[in-house]
Computed example of a mutant assay.
Amino acid sequence: MNRKFWSIGLLAAVMLISAGCGQKPGAAPDNTPEQVTPAPGGQTGQGNEDPTSGAGGASTGNEVTKPETKTESIKSYYTDPDVMELVEGTANISYKEDQDKYEAAYQTLQKSDNPDMIPLWEKIEMKSLKFDNGTITIDVHVPDEANLGAGGEAFAIDAIKKTFFQFDEVKSIQLLVDGQQAESLMGHVDLEYPMTR
């Protein structure tokens, strides 16, 4: 009789332990990396051990997930070695924020690995670039050695327009020279304010 009670007690203990273990997976559903359960001591267990995150290690809500790097293939424009025509090429850009996308697109105009595609913006320094409400404002500095003549200047303006207007959200471009609206980029072709599609 004593053996029977021990068997029932042991069976009941095993059932309780199994039932308790069976409840754990349902407590935290899979595929929810956003939910972070604090561990003892205020740590989240997710590697967020930033001592500046708030008093006592508590989250301040500033721990927004960092944007992933995006890669995109875009069209970029150059000229031929004789500066006789505008040549379309492709370039891969990587960026995290939209602002970075436009800066990366500008940088494609400054370099080329193909000897038959000469960059028209190679020597033109971008001082700043801002995108706001459909308008890209680019402030550049044009040194004397960047002067391409009338034909090259016209191609350079066409290249920047075609490169940026491939993005649907870009409606206009304001091209400034040393922070000012200049009559022309290199002294040959009149600039429009703003340049539109």
Rank of each mutant, 00 (worst) to 15 (best):
G151D: 15
E145V: 12
I118K: 12
E145R: 08
T108Q: 11
D144M: 05
L129I: 14
L120S: 06
D144V: 02
D113N: 14
P115I: 12
G151M: 12
A150V: 06
Q110C: 14
T135Y: 00
D132A: 09
L120Q: 06
V140C: 03
I124V: 15
I124K: 01
P143W: 07
P119M: 09
P115R: 03
G149L: 08
K130L: 10
T137S: 14
H141P: 07
K123Y: 03
K123D: 14
E145P: 10
D113G: 15
D139K: 08
K127H: 04
L109G: 08
L129V: 12
N147G: 02
L129N: 00
P143N: 09
I136Y: 07
L148M: 15
T137M: 08
D116N: 13
E145D: 15
N114G: 00
L120D: 11
V142N: 13
I118M: 11
K123W: 02
L148P: 03
K130R: 09
N114E: 13
P143T: 11
D132M: 03
S128C: 07
A146V: 03
K130M: 05
D139Q: 05
A146Y: 01
I138E: 07
T108D: 04
D144P: 00
K111E: 14
L109R: 07
M117S: 04
K127I: 15
T135C: 07
F131L: 13
I138L: 15
K123V: 02
N133W: 04
N114Y: 07
T108S: 11
H141A: 15
I138C: 09
P115E: 13
M126V: 08
L148A: 15
W121F: 11
L120I: 06
E153Y: 05
L109H: 03
N147A: 13
P143V: 09
G134C: 03
V142T: 13
L148R: 10
I138Y: 02
P119L: 10
A150Y: 03
S128Y: 01
W121Q: 03
W121R: 07
P119Y: 03
A146E: 00
G152K: 08
G149S: 06
D144R: 02
E125Y: 00
E125G: 00
D132C: 00
Q110H: 00
T135H: 01
I124P: 11
W121S: 05
P119I: 12
K130W: 05
E122Y: 04
I118H: 06
L148D: 10
D132K: 14
L109N: 08
K127Y: 01
Q110N: 02
L148T: 09
A146F: 04
D116M: 13
I118E: 10
A150I: 10
G134F: 03
N147Q: 13
N114W: 09
M126R: 08
